[in-house]
Design a binder for these strands. Structure first.
Length: 876
RNA sequence: GCCCGCGUGGUGGAAUGGUAGACACAGGGGACUUAAAAUCCCUCGGCUGAAAGGCCAUGCCGGUUCAAAUCCGGCCGCGGGCACCA
């Protein structure tokens, strides 16, 4: 064996895997199947370390499952529609399609050297007509199933560019290009009826036992089931047709603390009042700014008293003013509320600002009805004393009070208990070019008509220009013109395209039959679904996963997925980001200037870490005064400020190009490093020293393999039993680490095992068996070096296809255990006892221990707790 | 603003109610070398002590428990999401 040279061995083994078709997924009824999927990338053009980490995790799982005898599906594709392609076309010219496919080719070329066990024959891009044509077919099926409808909804409108903006394109309430203040404007849009499934999407979360608890909780909160009271206020002085004002509240128990009613600026009543120029101006003011919840809820709370009054349902003589307020959302409840300032902080702020009364309804049990400095909002499960209650006991929990208040309203006929969800229907219309065209036709005679399936795919026209803001499909001369599939008359195509979340809501199903001329093939879907392990970023915890769960149900309803696939992801793992520290200096104006990691030099001088701009030789022998040295560097503008690690981003230049790392150390080193050190669900900080350490370790394993290879065949050693035990332990720990998504722990075990093996003095066959096992255990993480060691040490066939080792259970248990002894919870001694020793005997030995006697100093023992195999605690 | 996380040595982390700091990085000391690199060995939370040992220590404050990094309550700091970023 020669020097460890990844640039030679890595391409060689990748070719060998290709030739053997090792990773081609095949339906094999004789084997259990395993479908592992990483969230597919957006083709930005460059892979980054986050991709490397994500795909390496999936690869570790896929390779382990393959070795464990599963028929594995591990595909890859491209989430290829979206705004960046159009932005690139606007900024640099060119066409979104060319830009996207060029990026896909570039990224694929960058991914290949990683040696991932991907079945590339199933590759797909969502911008392929082959893919989005099937999506259009499903859209039509969903229309027929009643899951699609149109309604008016608000968008961010840029009044200068005359175009709709994404939330991302609204910066501080202004359009990102024009700088104009954005308005909220209504547009007729396409919607999926995800709300039909609110209850089911919520209750089915309980069955997702292999999902992170936090993701399930976030989804549950997002769906937001609430029980409340809906009732109508009788109005006084309202325009015709507004005799009652319907409101919904989750706190009907606070009805006696009401001090005003408030409606959204988009409420029909507010619109009816727009004849009044003052109200029109106020409503226009409310519509300024973007549509995002963050912007609306952090905006200053403003209101306008309409002069209209409503009668309190429990006392017709008690009238409340009706305000229009900017923090009331038309999308939730009825778009109208009653305000109870004493028990809602937002209402409290509003009431304080506009000098409205603040009356407490309840107080902490035992507390006085004191004046409030802020809203008193205890947990609903807490017992409080009602000072202005009207139903139920004086002292009760909030939950009890809500229930009794609803019962009271229903008994007296002024309101109804209603269950509502926060989840809104999914608006899928986008006024953009680079997306899946909505396959619908507007006919003067027939109205809105779905396109005939025979005409699918409705392909995007290529001849478009991006020199004017807005959707090029709207101004395309011929694409819009078509004939009505129903009556044959001249008609116009829908020019809205679909939200890119639609594309990513079913790609996992398409991978089971990526070339089919129907969206799916049931036989394939039935074999491969569900995804056994889905891996991706925590940033997708809500939207992408919720939409996918809905879409799988819709696909089942329309006959494209079997019933078992309505929850498409059996297990979910959300991985952390790859971060890097940021290197910054300042220019003459004091503005920050960022530097790439490769453009700085890091010195470790004593316990100081000094970062210097440029590539300079070590200063240690040039200076003996570190502080003076730092001052000198600072004066010359060479001293670099180190900002703590953050997600890698181009703007901060804290990026490391995976291909540079592969060129310097090989893919195995990159893979090993991103899997080591940090637990996969947490962020991992990329450090140059960490990558180098990984490379050094692989070199050590390589030379160890060489040394074992050169051992005389008849060498005898006394360490056979110890090494066999260490090997069994490594198998056990690495297997558990991988299966439990604790790759960092699996790697720590592999370090320990390699160190043990390097020091072991065992017979040649035992040494060879151990190094082959090491190679096999390393192979999910570092597949290339593993193959080389495997081949060199006489492994049969490809390491990638060799079965996963099994640990001999007899070698995993130790005969004696070391038990620490605590006295009053502090560790004072330890004893070694046979593993199966009965508790009374352990107690006897513990109490007879010299150190225990010394620490007890004659105090009587009150209690002794023995946790078998773990610890002894003596309470004195 | 609302929802959800996270916080342990100089650093990444291990320990998921039972010996805090596995494994690794950085640092310190040594071997080899003319020298350096590479490699190998030792050491490595703080205070105290000649040593044995003792005391302190898991963001901060309080609680539950024989026992808390771990469970509960409050606070501080950081991160993710908020429906047209993907």
């Amino acid at each position: 064996m020669s020097r460890y040279d990844p640039s030679v061995i890595e391409p060689r083994w990748q070719e060998a895997w290709d030739k053997a078709g090792a990773f081609t997924a095949r339906r094999d009824p004789a084997k259990p199947k395993y479908y592992v999927l990483e969230m597919f990338p957006y083709p930005s053009g460059r892979i980054h370390m986050g991709h490397v980490r994500n795909y390496t995790m999936g690869d570790v799982v896929a390779r382990t499952k393959l070795a464990q005898g599963y028929s594995v599906l591990h595909p890859m594709g491209w989430d290829a529609f979206g705004m960046p392609a159009e932005n690139a076309a606007m900024e640099r010219g060119g066409h979104p399609k060319d830009w996207t496919y060029g990026n896909i080719a570039d990224m694929k070329a960058q991914m290949k050297p990683l040696g991932l066990s991907i079945d590339w024959s199933r590759e797909l891009a969502t911008c392929d007509p082959e893919y989005y044509g099937q999506q259009q077919a499903m859209f039509i099926d969903m229309m027929e199933a009643g899951l699609v409808y149109r309604k008016a909804a608000v968008v961010n409108w840029d009044p200068v560019d005359m175009t709709v903006l994404a939330n991302e394109q609204v910066i501080d309430g202004k359009g990102w290009r024009s700088g104009a203040v954005v308005e909220r404007r209504e547009l007729t849009q396409w919607f999926f009826k995800i709300s039909d499934y609110s209850e089911e999407l919520l209750s089915a979360l309980d069955g997702l036992t292999h999902w992170p608890e936090k993701v399930r909780l976030m989804q549950a909160n997002w769906i937001g089931k609430s029980r409340g009271l809906q009732f109508g206020f009788k109005t006084v002085g309202a325009p015709a047709g507004f005799d009652t004002l319907e409101v919904y509240t989750t706190r009907p128990d606070t009805l006696m603390g009401a001090s005003f009613a408030a409606i959204s600026a988009d409420h029909p009543l507010a619109r009816a009042l727009e004849g009044d120029p003052k109200i029109a101006a106020f409503v226009a003011e409310c519509r300024r700014g973007g549509t995002s919840a963050e912007e609306i809820e952090t905006a200053e709370k403003i209101g306008y008293d309409t002069g209209i009054r409503v009668q309190h349902p429990l006392d017709p003589n008690w009238e409340l003013p009706v305000w229009i307020a900017n923090f009331i959302l038309m999308d939730y409840g009825t778009g109208a509320i009653f305000g109870c300032p004493a028990h809602d902080q937002r209402d409290f702020d509003f009431a304080t600002k506009y000098r409205l009364p603040i009356k407490a309804v309840f107080a902490a049990d035992g507390a006085e009805d004191a004046a409030l400095a802020e809203a008193y909002v205890p947990m609903k499960s807490e017992r409080v004393r009602y000072v202005r209650g009207f139903a139920g006991a004086e002292v009760q929990t909030g939950d009890e009070a809500v229930a009794t208040a609803i019962a009271h309203a229903e008994t007296h006929g002024y309101g109804t208990g209603v269950t509502k969800f926060r989840l809104r229907d999914w608006g899928v219309s986008r006024q953009r070019y680079w997306g899946c065209p909505i396959p619908v036709i507007h006919c003067a005679g027939c109205g809105v008509v779905p396109e005939a399936k025979a005409n699918l795919p409705i392909e995007l026209p290529y001849d478009v220009s991006f020199d004017v803001p807005g959707n090029p499909l709207d101004r395309h001369p011929t694409w819009r013109d078509c004939t009505c599939p129903k009556c044959g008359a001249a008609a116009r195509r829908e020019t809205d395209t679909m939200d890119t979340f639609v594309d990513s809501s079913w790609y996992y199903a398409r991978f089971t039959a990526p070339r089919a001329t129907t969206p799916t093939v049931l036989e394939d879907a039935d074999y491969w679904m569900n995804v056994d392990q889905y891996i991706g970023g925590i940033e997708h915890a809500i939207l992408h996963l919720l939409y996918s769960r809905f879409f799988a149900r819709a696909m089942h309803k329309t006959g494209h997925l079997p019933a078992k696939a309505i929850e498409p992801f059996n297990a979910l793992f959300t991985q952390g980001m790859v971060t890097h520290e940021i290197y910054m200096t300042r220019d003459a104006q004091g503005r920050p200037v960022y530097h790439l990691p490769e453009d700085v030099t890091v010195f470790n001088v004593a316990d100081r870490r000094i970062v210097v701009k440029g590539n300079v030789p070590p200063p240690v022998d040039m200076i003996d005064d570190v502080d003076a040295f730092i001052r000198a560097l600072s004066d010359e503008g060479l001293l670099v400020e180190v900002i703590p690690s953050a997600k890698m981003s181009k703007s901060k230049k804290n990026v490391v190009d995976p291909n540079d790392i592969i060129a310097a150390y090989g893919a195995d080193t990159a893979r090993w490093f991103v899997m080591s050190d940090s637990p996969p669900e947490r962020d991992v900080e990329w450090t140059a020293s960490g990558a180098e350490a990984a490379f050094k370790h692989l070199n050590r394993v390589w030379t160890l393999c060489d040394r074992i290879g050169q051992m005389p065949a008849d060498h005898q050693g006394e360490g056979d039993n110890d090494l066999a035990r260490a090997t069994a332990k490594a198998i056990d720990e690495v297997t558990k680490g991988i299966e439990g998504f604790a790759f960092n722990k699996a790697i720590a075990s592999l370090y320990a095992f390699a160190n043990t093996l390097a020091k072991a003095n065992a017979s040649t066959p035992v040494m060879k068996e151990a190094i082959r096992t090491l190679a096999k255990l390393m192979s999910p993480m570092t597949p290339h070096i593993a193959e080389d060691i495997w081949a060199y040490q006489g492994g049969i066939g490809l390491c990638a296809e060799a079965p996963w080792p099994k640990a001999d259970p007899a070698l995993l248990v130790d005969d004696t255990v070391t038990l620490p002894i605590q006295i009053n919870g502090k560790r004072r001694a330890e004893i070694s006892v046979p593993k199966d020793m009965p508790i009374p005997e352990v107690e006897k030995i513990a109490l007879a221990d010299e150190a225990v006697i010394r620490f007890l100093a004659g105090q009587p023992v009150k209690k002794i707790i023995v946790v078998p195999g773990r610890i002894i605690n003596v309470v004195a």
